[in-house]
Each structure stands twice: as structure tokens, then as C-alpha cells.
């Protein structure tokens, strides 16, 4: 097995191990909350007998370890249990919500990632001159504004004044793709403005770091233009740090967008989670936590693997 393959397999194994550890934490965390599920269902006024019956029916009297494995086994086979408040199947509800969240994150990523990298390249090409300062200034200003503020300003301009786009992003199942896309455009642009600065500045810093290398001088002495030097010689050596920051922001787009979902009334994972936290619906919170953790770990694992594969010394050993 090649060195690169071994490292990649190692990363995958570590990622799975980490996910397992996180599942233990999530389960343990919800166990040490005061009261239990039976209490939450029946309320404060329930009789001890009714509580005891329900606990027995739900298997809450089993040891925690047994319940953990039952829960984990269910999660692995796609059965996340039922929500306490509505009695609905969690897997089904999350499936629809997660699809919406991934769609919004995907649209935002498709706009933000190429734009951030392009702006980063331009900033390096004209470093310390006005295009660099303008790009840095605008992106930093947009990251400094709270996302709900950006969201409302965009709604004011594009929905209320110009009437180009709808103000709300209430998508439903079976909506045609084009219509769906129009609806999520405003929230996606809001998210883009939030994540752009971080990715752009990391791209700029990573490439500038590489620009100190002797091989950049070689490229300049070949008579290549400034942009050719950056794109052909500096960028390929800066991929690892850039992918890392891109993945961190992608993870944010998936797990951290509750404010934007609320502003645009978008039925995504964030809203779903917040709703059920306020209702103390423990099985839903556990399931959402597990999915968010899986997304986070998965994306960071991808970043690690890309870094390994981007290193020619690992890909092509002597």
C-alpha cells in the first residue's frame, strides 16, 4: 500500500473513531440533564405509577450502556426514533430538513468558494495596491455586519424596493428546481457575504506565503506574467490550507445557519433543532447533534485527505 493510501485510510479510521466518541458525548450529555423523557412527556403532575409504567414501556429502566447501544444501532440503520412532541418519525422529518439545508448550503458554496478564491488571487496579484485593499475592506465589512442585518437589508433592496426576488424562502416538497433556486437566492447571497472574507483572506495569506519561495523567482525569471505565476506556480502549492478553510466554512454553512433560516423562514435543520431544543425534545436533539457532528467530521476529513493528496511527496514517493 502506498504511503498516501495508508495515510488516507488512517484518516478515515480516525474520523469514524471520532464520530463514535462524539456519539457517546451526545448521549451522555442528554443523560445528565435533570428529569427524563418520561417526565417530559407526562409533565410535572404525573403520578409515580404512570411515570414508572411509561419508563418501563420506553425501556428507560435499562442500564445507560444498553440504551446507548440500542440508540446507536438504530441510528446506524437509519432509525432515529420518534419525536416526543409530535410523535413523528425523526428520520423522515430530518431527511426533508437536511435536504433543504444541504441545498441552501450548496447554492451558497457554489457562489462563495469560486468567488473567494478568485478574489484571493486578485488580491495577491495586486497586493498592497488598491484592488487588494478594496477587496479586503469590502469583505471584512460584510463579515462584521450581523447576518440578520445583511438579510434584512437584502430583503429591503431586492424584494421590497426592486421586487426582483421574493422576500421569503418557504420551499416545500416537490417544488420545481428553478423556483426553489429563485427562492433560496437571497439567503444564499447573505451566507456568501458571511463566509467570503474568511476564505478570501486565507487564500490570500496561503498564496502570499508560497510567493516567498525560490521557485516563484524561477517562474518570474521565465518571463511569465504576474497572474500566470500565481495561478500556475503558487496556487497548486497553497491548496492544502485553502481547502482547510473552505471545508470549515462549508461546515458552518450546514450547521450554523439558524439565524438566516429564521430571517427567510426557510425550513432547514437549524430551525428544526432550535424548535425542539426549546421543547426539550431529547431524541430530536440527539439525532440532530449526531448529524451535525457527522457533517463536521466528514468535511474536515475531506480537507485532511485533500491535503494529503495535494502533497506530491506523498502521492509520488521516491
Amino acid at each position: 500500500m502506498g504511503l498516501a493510501t495508508r495515510l488516507v485510510v488512517q484518516r478515515l479510521a480516525l474520523g469514524l473513531l471520532l464520530l463514535l466518541a462524539v456519539s457517546v458525548l451526545i448521549f451522555a450529555g442528554t443523560q445528565i440533564l435533570p428529569g427524563d423523557v418520561a417526565q417530559s412527556i407526562l409533565g410535572q403532575s404525573a403520578t409515580p405509577e404512570a411515570l414508572e409504567n411509561l419508563r418501563r414501556d420506553m425501556g428507560l429502566n435499562e442500564p445507560a450502556v444498553t440504551r446507548y447501544f440500542t440508540w446507536l444501532g438504530g441510528a446506524l440503520t437509519g432509525d432515529l426514533g420518534t419525536a416526543l412532541t409530535s410523535g413523528a418519525d425523526i428520520s423522515e422529518a430530518i431527511g426533508a430538513r437536511l435536504g433543504n439545508t444541504l441545498f441552501l448550503a450548496g447554492v451558497a458554496a457554489v457562489i462563495a468558494i469560486p468567488l473567494a478564491i478568485l478574489l484571493g488571487l486578485i488580491a495577491v496579484r495586486f497586493r498592497e495596491r488598491w484592488p487588494d485593499k478594496l477587496i479586503s475592506g469590502v469583505t471584512l465589512a460584510s463579515i462584521s455586519l450581523p447576518e440578520f442585518f445583511i438579510g434584512y437589508v437584502l430583503i429591503l433592496i431586492f424584494a421590497v424596493k426592486l421586487r426582483w426576488l421574493p422576500p421569503l424562502a418557504t420551499v416545500y416538497d416537490g417544488m420545481p428546481f428553478g423556483e426553489r433556486l429563485t427562492l433560496v437566492l437571497l439567503p444564499a447571497i447573505t451566507l456568501t457575504m458571511v463566509v467570503l472574507a474568511h476564505m478570501m483572506r486565507m487564500t490570500r495569506a496561503a498564496i502570499l506565503n508560497v510567493m516567498q519561495s525560490a521557485y516563484i523567482e524561477t517562474a518570474e525569471l521565465k518571463g511569465l506574467s504576474g497572474f500566470q505565476v500565481i495561478a500556475r506556480h503558487a496556487f497548486p502549492n497553497a491548496i492544502a490550507p485553502i481547502v482547510n478553510v473552505v471545508m470549515l466554512n462549508l461546515a458552518y454553512l450546514i450547521v450554523g445557519v439558524v439565524v438566516v433560516e429564521v430571517v427567510f423562514a426557510y425550513p432547514g435543520m437549524g430551525q428544526y433543532l432550535v424548535d425542539h431544543v426549546s421543547k426539550r425534545d431529547v431524541p430530536v436533539v440527539q439525532a440532530s447533534g449526531l448529524i451535525f457532528a457527522a457533517v463536521y467530521i466528514g468535511l474536515n476529513m475531506v480537507a485532511d485527505i485533500v491535503s494529503i493528496l495535494a502533497n506530491p511527496r506523498l502521492r509520488h514517493p521516491k
Partner: peptide, 11 residues
């Protein structure tokens, strides 16, 4: 250059 090792792009 003096150091070809540094002057070749590793990628």
C-alpha cells in the same frame, strides 16, 4: 540558481 531543489516547483 544555486539551489535547484528550492527553485523547482515541488507540485
Amino acid at each position: 540558481s544555486q539551489s535547484a531543489a528550492a527553485s523547482f516547483n515541488p507540485a
